[in-house]
Computed example of a mutant assay.
Amino acid sequence: MNTPYCCPNCKTNRSRFNIIKQDVQSVKMDPRTGDLLEEYASEQLSPFHLAYNGPEKRVQCASCGLIEDEKTFIKFGEKNNV
Rank of each mutant, 00 (worst) to 15 (best):
N2A: 11
T3N: 13
T3G: 01
P4T: 05
P4L: 07
Y5H: 04
Y5N: 01
C7T: 00
P8K: 12
N9Q: 15
C10W: 12
K11Q: 15
R14T: 13
R14W: 04
S15Q: 10
S15L: 09
S15C: 05
S15W: 04
R16M: 10
F17H: 13
F17I: 12
F17N: 12
I19M: 08
I19H: 05
K21R: 15
V27A: 09
V27P: 02
K28G: 03
K28C: 03
D30V: 01
D30Y: 03
P31Q: 07
T33V: 07
T33H: 08
G34N: 04
D35S: 09
D35H: 11
L36Y: 07
E38R: 15
E39A: 13
E39F: 01
E39P: 01
A41T: 09
S42K: 11
E43D: 09
Q44Y: 12
Q44P: 00
S46Y: 03
S46R: 10
P47S: 10
P47A: 10
F48N: 11
F48Y: 06
H49R: 15
L50W: 06
L50S: 12
Y52L: 03
Y52W: 10
Y52D: 14
N53D: 15
N53S: 14
G54W: 02
P55Y: 12
K57M: 08
K57F: 12
K57H: 11
K57Q: 09
R58C: 04
R58H: 10
R58S: 05
R58W: 07
V59H: 03
V59P: 01
V59N: 02
Q60D: 03
Q60F: 05
C61G: 06
A62E: 10
A62K: 08
A62W: 05
A62F: 06
S63P: 00
S63F: 08
S63L: 09
C64K: 02
G65P: 04
L66G: 01
L66T: 02
I67V: 14
I67S: 04
I67L: 05
I67E: 03
E68R: 13
E68S: 08
D69N: 10
D69K: 11
E70W: 10
E70D: 05
K71D: 03
T72P: 00
I74C: 03
K75Q: 07
K75A: 04
F76P: 00
F76W: 09
E78K: 15
N80L: 02
N81C: 08
N81R: 14
V82L: 11
